[in-house]
């Protein structure tokens, strides 16, 4: 399997690996995938005032492309509002990392992880918003 330079870079030096405490202020978690399918991604975002994502962390069980996709996404979502984060599309991820066709599902999973994290944020936020 030939990996692109960018995949290798993210794989060798993954950005923002780790976890936030789930109870931390503004933290939301998206967990997608299944072990049986060979990949599980956990993306966490830390959302500040005005719905801006201040920080992001990930952990991924999966191939090099899955690790790279999730690492890349943590960089991309930072500084974006949660709504803007939802605009990140798997095609952009795949293009940036030059993923081969057999690895496109990794970028789809990364997009799903963003959606799941944002959904979790909205759920928690909605709960808090109700007086």
């Amino acid at each position: 399997m030939a990996y692109s330079v960018k995949v290798l870079d993210h794989y060798e030096n993954p950005r923002n690996v780790g976890s936030f405490g789930n109870e931390e202020e503004g933290v939301a978690t998206g967990m997608v995938g299944a072990p049986a399918c060979g990949d599980v991604m956990k993306l966490q975002i830390k959302v500040g005032k005005g719905g801006v994502i201040e920080d992001a962390k990930f952990k991924t069980y999966g191939c090099g492309s899955a690790i790279a996709s999730s690492s890349l996404v943590t960089e991309w979502v930072k500084g974006k509002t949660v709504e803007q984060a939802l605009d990140i599309k798997n095609t952009q991820i795949a293009e940036e990392l030059a993923l081969p066709p057999v690895k496109i599902h990794c970028s789809i999973l990364a997009e799903d992880a963003i959606k799941a994290a944002v959904a979790d944020y909205k759920k928690k936020h909605a709960e808090q918003a109700v007086p």
Partner: peptide, 10 residues
Amino acid sequence: AYVEGESLLM
């Protein structure tokens, strides 16, 4: 356990 095969090979 808890390590994916392809990334391990890499």
